[in-house]
């Protein structure tokens, strides 16, 4: 492979087809992209554009129908569930829309869960610092049901940071939060990850959320159709929204091939 550069996440002509025969749907119709080290990339697109599938394939949660995915320099091709899990455990963290905390575990237990599962001794000082950094220092012994939505998402972010993994995948991390809380959470995610030099891949449909990223990738019908890159400044929410509106209109237009 000639493209095993230092990009922690690489997709090469990734296709994902659901179903068979005439009813088959191309969720991803050949995506090639490199998520460069230390970048914060937002993947945007209208509903059904394949953005969640892209995230799942990139993170090794789902297997592409054809094409190659490299995660942290390793090809995912032919890896079984256990090897995939171990690879993810080593290099990847997740933040999901529905918080996805274990209801039976306390905040601290949830934060160290990936390390517990990997059989690693968590660095207690670091875990404490991370939990404090997300503003939950007072609530380490609480269970998720005793926390608000924003607080639960902070726990998820703390979990993503605590493992010092190279890559964080976030799937609509602000989808279930009100605007103020969403902004707090996004700031936290960006600033803390940047401190650790993590690569972030975030799927969202919210232009405001996307404006926190260094780059925004637009996906329509399973293809990457355009990209906004940070020049001197971040892509603004307005620019993102305009691009999105144009893409949606283009998709509806009959003249589009």
């Amino acid at each position: 492979m000639n493209n095993t550069g230092n990009a922690p996440v690489q997709l090469t002509d990734v296709r994902k087809v659901y179903g068979t025969g005439p009813g088959a749907v191309d969720a991803l119709a050949g995506v090639t992209y490199e998520f460069a080290a230390g970048t914060f990339t937002a993947v945007m697109g209208p509903s059904g554009s394949g953005k969640s599938t892209l995230l799942h394939c990139a993170a090794g949660l789902d297997t592409p129908t054809t094409g190659d995915v490299h995660l942290a320099g390793r090809s995912l091709r032919g890896l079984d569930e256990t090897s995939l899990t171990e690879l993810r455990r080593e290099h990847v963290a997740f933040v999901f829309q529905s918080f996805n905390l274990m209801p039976a575990l306390t905040v601290r237990q949830n934060v160290v869960l990936p390390m517990t599962l990997a059989g690693k001794q968590p660095d207690d000082a670091w875990v404490t610092e991370v939990i404090r950094a997300v503003g939950l220092g007072e609530r380490v012994k609480h269970r998720p049901s005793e926390l608000s939505g924003g607080q639960q998402q902070r726990v998820a972010i703390a979990r993503a940071l605590a493992g010092r993994t190279a890559i964080t995948f976030a799937d609509e991390p602000t989808g279930a939060l009100d605007t103020t809380t969403a902004l707090e959470v996004l700031t936290l995610l960006r600033d803390q990850s940047r401190r650790l030099g993590q690569t972030i891949v975030m799927v969202t449909h919210d232009p405001v959320a996307a404006s926190y990223a260094d780059r925004v990738v637009f996906l329509v019908d399973g293809r990457i159709v355009s990209e906004l890159r940070r020049g001197a400044v971040h892509p603004t929410a307005e620019a993102v929204a305009a691009e999105l509106a144009q893409l949606s209109a283009g998709r509806l237009s009959p003249t589009e091939s």
Binding site: E81, T82, T85
Partner: peptide, 15 residues
């Protein structure tokens, strides 16, 4: 969902 979450959090199928 809870078990899938455990898997997403890094638990192997065996675990």
């Amino acid at each position: 969902r809870e078990l899938a979450l455990l898997r997403a959090s890094g638990a192997t199928p065996r675990q």
